[in-house]
Design a protein around this nucleic acid. Sequence first.
RNA 1: GGGACUGUAGCUCAGCUGGUUAGAGUGCCGGUCUGUCACACCGGAGGUCGCGGGUUCGAGCCCCGUCAGUCCCGCCA
Length: 591
Amino acid sequence: MATSLRSRLCGSVRASDAGTKVRLGGWVHRTRDLGGIVFVDLRDRAGIVQVSFDPRWTPPEVLRRAGAVGVESVVLVEGEIAARPPESRNADLATGDVEVRATGLQLSGPSVTPAIPVARGKGEQLPAEELRLRHRYLDLRRPELHANLEMRHRLMQTTRRHLSDRGFLEIETPILTKPTPEGARDYIVPSRMHAGEFYALPQSPQLYKQLLMIAGYDRYFQIARCFRDEDLRADRQPEFTQIDIEAAFVGREDIMSVAEGLIGELFAESGAAAPAHFRRMSYADAMERYGTDRPDLRFGLELFDASDAFRETEFGIARSALGSGGRVRGLRLPGAAGFSRKQADELEEIAKSAGAGGLIRLRRTADSVEGPAAKFLGAEAVARLALADGDLALFVAGPDRVSSPALDRVRHEAARRLALVREGAREFLWVLDFPLFEQDAETGRLNATHHPFTSPHPDDLRHLESDPARVRAVAYDVVLNGMELGGGSIRIHDPAVQERVFRLLGIDEAAARLRFGFLLEGLRSGAPPHGGIAFGFDRIAMLLAGASSLRDVIAFPKTTAARALFEGAPSTVPAEDLDDLHIRVAGTAHD
RNA sequence: GGGACUGUAGCUCAGCUGGUUAGAGUGCCGGUCUGUCACACCGGAGGUCGCGGGUUCGAGCCCCGUCAGUCCCGCCA
């Protein structure tokens, strides 16, 4: 790290360096002017070191200027590393046994008073997210974000090395690509040379990587930027990074094994551990037992079907649900019988916000079962629920598509309140055997659960047209603690099967040729069996950096309204530029 | 598209039931101070209470709208 202007990094100085002459460059983190002597905490990406300006070794003129430097200014310091007096060592600082005794000081990049502080007082909250994003270069100076981005870098290098060592080729695919009618909304880029035509930014390199397999590049990877123009969440940015992997002459187990190997390596790089192999669960199982396709297995609280207990009762909510083909499902919360009315109401609010009509509560105490539904349940029905003393049971009556998400959220909130999640616990899981299609609740149309190129399970091929809902996909998701890390599938490589799937999705032959003609032609031109997987790299980085938001592992993230506050994107463009692009903004008078 | 929360000094926040001149900490400016490390102490400056409208004798506080940020639902093949 030595350059012509500095001899080493501030944060790298140690007691063993005492006596060495150094030249340092860095940002003024804090200053302490005691009158006769001045201390400056100098910060660079390696850490902080104390520079002491003292008349015993500092020329008066330098000492005077040291007292006047503002925080966040860039200074160049000349001096000598010296052990601190024993009584003034600082155990909180990696460099705290030493200091740099300054003989020279050059104010290289003075700073105005920073809009947001970089050095924070103890217990002081971070500045508002808006300000952190608007003054991003200041926020990024904080050691926490330096550590996060360094971790991200290391994960990226580990990915490259790991996959490259295993014969995967890193191949770039286009950013200017073709709009896709399915899936998320595309970010659109107008073409100047072709009036009225548009490129789209890729939602993923899916088609390209399949074409690479057809072209014989039988192990591919890319750390790929992907773009989706959808509404955002804490864990969702409009542009994000995937580790994209595809291989030919493989089955499901080959890809899963590559994925486990890579995940293991990434966790090891961060100092954490991942098991060599992950547990497995079918989609159907996951939905039945946890109400979600990405269950958090760090705690129990499994859902169960209580329909039988309610079937013969006069309890109206349950009766109408059961009568219309729904079920009564619920979960037992051991030790939660002591929840107050208010606490139970809050859980109900969570269920309601997830779409449930309400929660049926049953509280089991030493000698009775209480709750609005209790009086409808006979002794036998109560016995069926197998409630233990101190249990609170919560039920949702209705179709699974309502009860599953509601109970999923109640389950998570209950686990949090009952403190069931062990600190540092990691539960990896493969979710397998997803349905190939899902039916749109409103239109009744079939949509691809994963994407239209996912291979049906060979055993289910014969049901493809007759009973598409029961057709399983050869697809797999990696889930960690309820968070989806990645997912993939074996792809269709038989053009006839691909055409059948397109037909079921309502994409007729003409439309298929228009949208995916190049893929279909490729499949007819010698396509190997192939499949792959993609991981959400930002999420993995967030997890392994211990960050609490995706924004803390992305150097220049967008807000939830998809704005870049620092550079001010998106923005209007001059009318002449729009003319060149053959674009007129609706509602403007410009010609 | 819908819901919730937030917006007061450069920053972090307090501001009671609507009531006189809007506060604290920190930062900033000036001063004292030779071993501090959130240095300490003394003094000072600093406000479009996000913006617009309304109710009221009177609005930081109530109402409507709007902008921005955050979280959630829908959406994200």
